[in-house]
Computed example of a mutant assay.
Amino acid sequence: MITLQNDQLKVVINELGAQLHSIQRVDNQIEYLWQGDPASWDRQAPILFPFVGRLKDDQYQFNGQTYHQTQHGFARDRKFAVLDQSATYVLLEQHDDDETRKAFPFAYSLRVKYELTGNQLAVTYSVTNPDAEQSLIYAIGAHPGFNMPLSANGRFDQVQLSVSPAETYSRVVLDGPYNDSAHPLTIDMHQPLTIDHDLFKNDAVIFETGGADFTATLTDPASQHGVHVHTHGTQHVGVWSPYPTKANFACVEPWWGIADNVAADGQLLHKQGMHRLAPRGTDDYHFSIQPF
């Protein structure tokens, strides 16, 4: 485990998947990050790469070959190496090998930077295509889970979700695990939304953010503690908690990608929400977590 600390935050990171393991404020020592439970969700903050969401039949076709890949990709289950580290910063890397090529026939480097800046944890994902000829086709996303409520006398069904800008958003509907973006709903977020478990009976609530800066905030009104997740350049931000299993956490998920469309034909070149990174190119993705 890797520990970062400044005068306001203490954060622990697991090299397996470069997954966040703990987020605490120094002044109150509240654990903001979900600690995992096999009865509901045994992960904490997986990195989603090279796919976000589920593929139809857990497979896709590329260059005449069929490849099998489970939901959210494989990066979350592979170790990252530490490239650089200080008291408040760490840079980790994972890259392709013979095993990844069985599920994803591309060369890649995925670097993850965590850095404490005041009362925020800044996160940067950097994807590099080392191939000199072939474009890298991928999606990436984050899936941090936050304890909700954050007080002994709070209740999950009192937790409030608010967003900034506070406006009406297009909401992508899920049909099972697949997106039905051709038939969106709207969700009015001019005022905070009090969440409950039934909100997630059809899986995640997915905001179409269109690349604009977007902040999602979870607040426990019993304690007035909560967390802001500031996103930059995402097309979608998902909010999720398990259903029908009930657990006291909610995830705020910046996505640069999305699950297969209900009309997907299985061809990687046609898949919705994928990025195409030119040979020798690098793209960066940013978000930050601000507990309060």
Results as ranks from 00 to 15, higher is better:
41 W>A: 09
34 W>L: 00
45 A>K: 06
55 L>C: 05
56 K>G: 12
23 I>Q: 11
31 E>S: 07
53 G>K: 01
46 P>S: 06
40 S>N: 14
44 Q>C: 07
29 Q>N: 07
46 P>F: 04
44 Q>W: 04
43 R>D: 09
56 K>T: 11
23 I>P: 13
35 Q>V: 05
42 D>K: 11
32 Y>E: 03
22 S>L: 15
19 Q>D: 13
25 R>G: 04
46 P>N: 02
53 G>Q: 03
38 P>H: 14
32 Y>I: 00
30 I>D: 09
26 V>I: 03
24 Q>D: 12
24 Q>V: 05
40 S>I: 10
55 L>F: 15
38 P>S: 02
43 R>H: 08
29 Q>L: 08
34 W>G: 01
51 F>P: 02
48 L>H: 02
45 A>M: 04
43 R>A: 14
43 R>M: 09
50 P>A: 01
47 I>N: 15
19 Q>S: 14
20 L>Q: 05
43 R>Q: 07
50 P>N: 01
32 Y>Q: 03
37 D>G: 10
54 R>S: 13
20 L>F: 05
39 A>E: 15
41 W>E: 14
32 Y>T: 00
48 L>S: 02
26 V>N: 14
32 Y>F: 13
30 I>R: 07
36 G>K: 07
52 V>A: 09
56 K>Q: 13
40 S>D: 07
50 P>L: 01
56 K>C: 11
42 D>I: 12
23 I>S: 04
54 R>W: 06
22 S>R: 15
25 R>T: 03
35 Q>H: 05
28 N>P: 07
26 V>F: 15
44 Q>V: 07
46 P>T: 00
23 I>M: 11
52 V>L: 08
21 H>M: 15
30 I>E: 04
37 D>L: 08
35 Q>R: 14
52 V>E: 09
47 I>H: 06
29 Q>W: 15
47 I>R: 10
34 W>A: 01
51 F>M: 04
41 W>H: 07
31 E>D: 13
32 Y>V: 00
57 D>I: 09
19 Q>M: 12
53 G>H: 02
36 G>E: 09
